[in-house]
Design a protein around this nucleic acid. Structure first.
Length: 542
RNA sequence: GUGCCUGUAGCUUAACGGAUAGAGCGUUGGACUCCGGAUCCAAAGGCUGCGGGUUCAAUUCCCGCCAGGCACACCA
């Protein structure tokens, strides 16, 4: 059993026996050095309800644990912490388990959805999308791993104004190829990648569209360009190892009649009204401080917000218990109106969730690269991956709290030196792999080692191994992928330190060697699982 | 002006409300005739932006300031 859980259960039970009630919420954690192995604050948090002092509670618990063979020693220290020293047998059990496999904690399964990236096919993915892709991907991996049923979804607008501008811009580039200069319209896309697409059209269809602009040409250029770009986006995601289960097109909502249905529901409930020739959704009826929003424009075109309403209804109808929208921080103003939508549609609280992440800038040397999509001056996600590699790209996006702005240090990510955390962690794994190989060559079989020689320094490692489940749960609950990176780093750190102080494969002491190898195998297993969730490779050699 | 996010060592940052705020870079000084030196050990460097409050205990929770980022469209 997980050591902390074991200690926790023993405390709860003893406490109930002694005081006739359950203890208040308390913690069990790894002690600081020289305070035993694990410590709890139970005596302090229960003092008030038990109407006695922490010291008295602690003394009684210590007395009650005297005969427990799992605890070699229990002491009280500081303001009332109880510090436990665990038996060797417990440590052996834990190590034994991790040497075989790494179990994921399991939760009551839920059907959940993560919707992320969702970039419209008007241009390549940027580094900002990259951050979002990694956050979404890791949270998806985590939730699948603990037993939830996860759908990864990519939503895109394939109707509407932006698409039209994309088609028009491509057509202009196409005409340029034939020497016909035309003016871009105000919101057209001027970026260079459209030149390539125009060339490809020219290669296939020649000059048949030069100087001709009508609805048919419009729709041809729009769909040609968006298809090309979408393929490009998908290749990039593939390269980044971010798969999607569903690519959901906005048009579907209109084709299936879901938009009409959503409109009817909201109308019946009185959330829809007409004003100034437009149709409005009454956000203020739910959140008085918020402004109402237009869903059908004067010209009869629906806004994207209207699609989003129907899309939420669709998600709900599909039976998800929870949906997560992962958005860049610039979208945060969208949250209240979407929350209002979920309430207006009668969707239960807890269904609609948003995970926001702050922006990304790139740093190379002293120079900070600013993103400017508008002028076609931005670094694509693909360029970044080609420069620093997939592992570093993923790790660097994963290792920072989504709530903080991320300065992506390109030079650091590229470096194969010790200051690069990716290599530090991978190096630990490669080093252990090398040990295993070494042992194999010498014919040392360690799988069935007894672990009798386990002592203080090994226990440090075992405690760190046993943190794994907690880290996973915390990462999921707080939606913080960086917890995994921090953990992988901490475990690697403890291994490197252990390695330096102890000779693992010692021909002069076979029993010790086997025990140590077995322990290293545990570390390797946990590192592999952790890295696999981060989506970074665990190399045998580097 | 309103809302959201963030202020921790010179730099990048960690810390389910817990004990002496933990790392890396940089600086200084050390460690393999032996398993991968891409490693390890040590030193120096902190009124955790400021001021209140809650608590046995606050970097963490609450309130007010200050600073930076972002958003406030019939664009997404």
């Amino acid at each position: 059993m997980h050591l902390k859980s074991l200690i926790r259960e023993k405390i709860s039970k003893k406490y109930f026996d002694l005081f006739g009630s359950d203890p208040a919420e308390f913690t069990v954690e790894i002690s600081p050095p020289n305070f035993g192995d694990y410590s709890t604050n139970v005596a302090m948090v229960c003092a008030k309800s038990a109407k006695t002092s922490p010291r008295k509670i602690g003394e009684k618990l210590i007395e009650a644990f005297k005969e427990d063979p799992d605890f070699e020693d229990v002491e009280m220290a500081g303001p009332g912490f109880l510090n436990f020293k665990l038996s060797k047998a417990l440590y052996r059990n834990v190590a034994e388990r991790y040497s075989k496999s790494v179990e994921m904690p399991k939760v009551k399964p839920q059907k959940i959805q993560f919707e992320f990236v969702s970039a419209n096919p008007t241009g390549p993915l940027t580094v900002g999308h990259g951050r979002q892709a990694i956050i979404g991907d890791i949270l998806s991996r985590l939730n699948s791993a603990i037993g939830n049923s996860v759908t990864r979804e990519y939503y895109f607008n394939d109707a509407g104004r932006q698409m039209k501008m994309l088609g028009h811009s491509t057509w202009i580039r196409y005409n340029e190829l034939y020497g016909k200069k035309m003016a871009f319209e105000e919101d057209d896309y001027v970026a260079d990648y459209l030149v390539d697409i125009a060339k490809s059209i020219s290669d296939k269809y020649g000059d048949e569209y030069v100087g001709i602009w009508n609805d048919e040409v419009q729709s041809f250029f729009t769909s040609y360009a968006s298809n090309e770009i979408f393929e490009w986006i998908k290749r990039t995601l593939d390269k980044l190892h971010v798969p999607f289960d569903v690519y959901f097109s906005e048009q579907t909502l209109y084709k299936t009649g879901l938009t009409d249905e959503a409109m009817k529901i909201l109308k019946d409930k009185g959330y829809i009204y007409e004003k100034e020739d437009s149709t409005w959704f009454a956000v203020s009826k739910i959140f008085p401080a918020e402004d109402d929003r237009v869903i059908i424009r004067k010209n009869g075109d629906p806004t994207y917000f209207f699609s989003d309403i129907a899309y939420m209804l669709d998600k709900y109808r599909r039976g998800f218990e929870k949906v997560y929208y992962i958005w860049g921080a610039d979208h945060h103003g969208y949250i209240p109106r979407m929350m209002a939508v979920s309430k207006a549609l009668g969707i239960p609280d807890g269904f609609f969730n948003v995970i926001l992440h702050q922006f990304v800038t790139l740093k190379s040397g002293e120079e900070t690269v600013r993103m400017s999509k508008r002028h076609g001056e931005f670094v694509t996600l693909e360029d970044l991956m080609d420069t620093v590699g997939v592992d570093a790209t993923r790790y660097f996006f994963a290792m920072m709290d989504p709530d903080t702005t991320l300065v992506f240090d390109v030079d650091l990510a590229k470096s194969k030196r010790m200051d690069n955390p990716v290599y530090y962690v991978q190096y630990a794994h490669a080093r252990i792999s090398s040990l295993m190989k070494n042992a194999k060559e010498k014919g040392i079989e360690y799988e069935r080692a007894s672990l009798e020689t386990i002592s203080k320094d090994e226990e440090i490692l075992v405690r760190e191994l046993d943190e794994f489940q907690d880290v996973v749960i915390t990462a999921v609950n707080q939606q913080k992928p960086q917890k995994l990176c921090n953990y992988a780093y901490a475990l690697s750190e403890k291994f490197h330190s252990y390695y330096t102080d102890h000779r693992i494969v010692d021909p002069g002491n076979m029993e010790l060697s086997k025990d140590r190898l077995k322990l290293c195998a545990c570390v390797k297993n946990v590192l592999e699982v952790t890295l696999s969730i981060i989506g970074v490779s665990a190399p045998e050699e580097m």
